[in-house]
Write a protein that binds this DNA or RNA. Structure first.
Lengths: 217, 217
DNA sequence: TAGATTGTTAATCGATTAACAATC
DNA sequence: TAGATTGTTAATCGATTAACAATC
């Protein structure tokens, strides 16, 4: 368990922080200057206690009873906690539909992520520019990784090619993998793998829906 | 909490089932006919006890000590539990990069999901066909929903348009929303919302990475 | 002051992990 | 038979939720 201020930070808490940040920015842009935990909880549909603890965890200042906290300060605290003010370079393997969607997604700037290059095995794609980013052949991976000091690799290849892509990333010296391919990849323990599993997500949604439908009958 | 065979089914368990299914199919295609919980646990890097419980939950037959279960039977059981053998129609709002990636993703077939139509506010896109699916104007939403009896709506619009898209879906009679937009949407309690939050995912990955980096120093 | 909000400590809840008897 | 695997019950762990004193 990772710690901050001597308190442990859970995965769930880290997941909630970008949601708070997003909402706080919206409130700030709407002209608000103060925010309280009960307000955030109400807006996002969360329990107050959870929000209070999450905020206390990342905030550099104590809140003021009755009025809460200054929005700008809290935004700055969350931004810094999530390292959004530092630019983290990443590369992406697989420039099909999903790969292109991620390459072209401008929102990553806001999260401090910069996809510096794409890779693909399709010779027709190699050498092309997409959204201002060059697509390279896999053999250039070690070179690009070194050049931009990249630690994060994103996999958006078909499931059947995922393991191969993971191997290429690890061999090139990547430390963390964000895997969008519908396949389990096996890598050394020291490599961090985060699976973005559409099938799992969809399963949860479908199950909730069918539970609802059958309860209605 | 939903129940199966009198046992409760947790969200985490449902998320793991597609991973098992995927892995089992791979093993089946490689020629295996039997599978044991310890084997699955080892392959996917999970605890045996977890896998045993998950499998017992969805399996229609008792496993055989020492040899485990027949792979085909288990695949059939998970497939049926996840309702993958029924086709669930869905529509998608927002046919930008991400929307197209989802529209064109063939893997959804395997999960029983069929995206029957796309919607966009861009008049240049409306009327076009993408991957054999027609893009409609938002005003056609109620008609298409009725025609295909759609319960699931997928949102892939920019964050600023997410609430509007959600409102349109709910007004048209959609029951569940799969939200890929980086924004919290507010809908009636009875509507099921599942957020696919890239920022949250990335935050977890980045945090693990930076924890690792600092521990290395 | 009164009351809303804060931070923190305690209770509850649920999921994971451990332990173990049954059995092919 | 011996041993691996099963299903199930108990213990542990962590996160959520509840409760409450402090304070602006």
């Amino acid at each position: 368990m990772v710690t901050n201020k001597g308190l442990s930070v859970s995965k769930n808490q880290i997941q909630r922080l970008p949601m708070y940040l997003n909402h706080l920015k919206k409130l700030r842009d709407a002209g608000f200057t103060q925010i309280s935990a009960p307000q955030v909880a109400k807006d996002l549909g969360l329990h107050v206690e959870k929000v209070k603890k999450d905020i206390a965890l990342v905030s550099s200042s104590l809140g003021t009873p009755k009025s809460g906290r200054n929005i700008d300060d809290l935004i700055a605290d969350i931004t810094s906690f999530l390292n959004y003010d530092e630019i983290t370079p990443a590369i992406i393997i697989g420039c099909g539909q999903l790969g292109r969607a991620l390459l072209g997604y401008r929102g990553f700037d806001e999260y401090g992520l910069d996809i510096v290059a794409g890779f693909d095995i399709n010779p027709e794609l190699v050498g092309q520019d997409l959204f201002g980013k060059t697509i390279y052949a896999l053999e250039d991976l070690p070179m690009i990784r070194k050049k931009y000091k990249v630690d994060i690799g994103i996999i958006t290849v078909p499931g059947s090619a995922a393991q191969e892509a993971a191997n290429a990333l690890v061999d090139a010296g990547i430390l963390a993998i964000w895997n969008f391919a519908p396949a389990h990849i096996q890598v050394a323990d020291k490599i961090i793998v985060h699976d973005e599993n559409m099938a799992s997500s969809l399963a949860v949604l479908s199950h909730r829906l069918s539970a609802k439908m059958s309860s209605k009958k």
